[in-house]
Amino acid sequence: MSLFLNILIDGIAYGMILFMISVGLSVTMGLMRVINLAHGGFALVGGAVAHWLIIAQGLSFWLAAPLGVAAAVALAWPLERLIYRRIYGFGDLQQVLATIGLTFLMIATVNRLLGSTLLALPLPELLAQSVDLGFRTLPLHRLVVIGVGLAVIAGLWLLIDRTRFGIRLRAAVDNRATASAIGINTGLIYSATFCLGAGLAALGGILGAEMLPIEAYYPLRYMVLFLIVVAVGGMGSISGSFTAALGLGILDTATRYLVPGFGTIFFYGCIILFLALRPNGLWGRTA
């Protein structure tokens, strides 16, 4: 029983991180139809900036984390305006090549400035202390991650379902041309969505540094993981990404606990089985 609860807690915390990083990827793929392999790069930039602020500048975690997120957004805005805007019109393969080129540039820049070692993000004392849950003690950090993850999904739901921006966004996802024809500024929607996704990725990167350690090759190392979340959840679906991220987080954690030697085989076996049965993901729309 306690094993089961352990798996559940760790799996959910891991899943929340996957969700925060992948949701922006899913929405940009659904909205702009762009395969953005550089998405993990924003998590890297957020984590790297936060690392630099804490280690080199001596800032506290509480200040460095939002600044890291802000840095990722500040990078995402001009990138979207100058580069991605052109990429939208490319064919699939050109998109893959262009975004992989961007990923290389991000990796090389971080590598140049901060080196290729692990970029540690020391947790503040408050988050590092352990909490007694009755069946086990675990760092408060995990609970905070779960809390933030829930807050993000609630916030996204409010934004998408209850605001004017959300209505326009949904209209643009459903039909770009018509949305633009009835006077919705789709360009602005794209920019805002892209930056929101990048910011959330940075947040996930910073909070998840315990589970997915930040280093220069981060975007390439975990790219497949994030893309799997999108493929399983279905492109453009926020609730799909959430369910998929939680499910995959729990599945991955469970296989690590239960079949430690064969975790990867089992994990990918499940993915193949699932995608073979549901090629469009949980709530995917047919492309």
């Binding site: 497949v224 193949i272 073979a276």
Partner: peptide, 19 residues
Amino acid sequence: AKGLTLIMLTIAVASICHE
């Protein structure tokens, strides 16, 4: 399969072989 799903499946096959 097609598109992203296909890409993910091909990656999964290679990962399983690797393991």
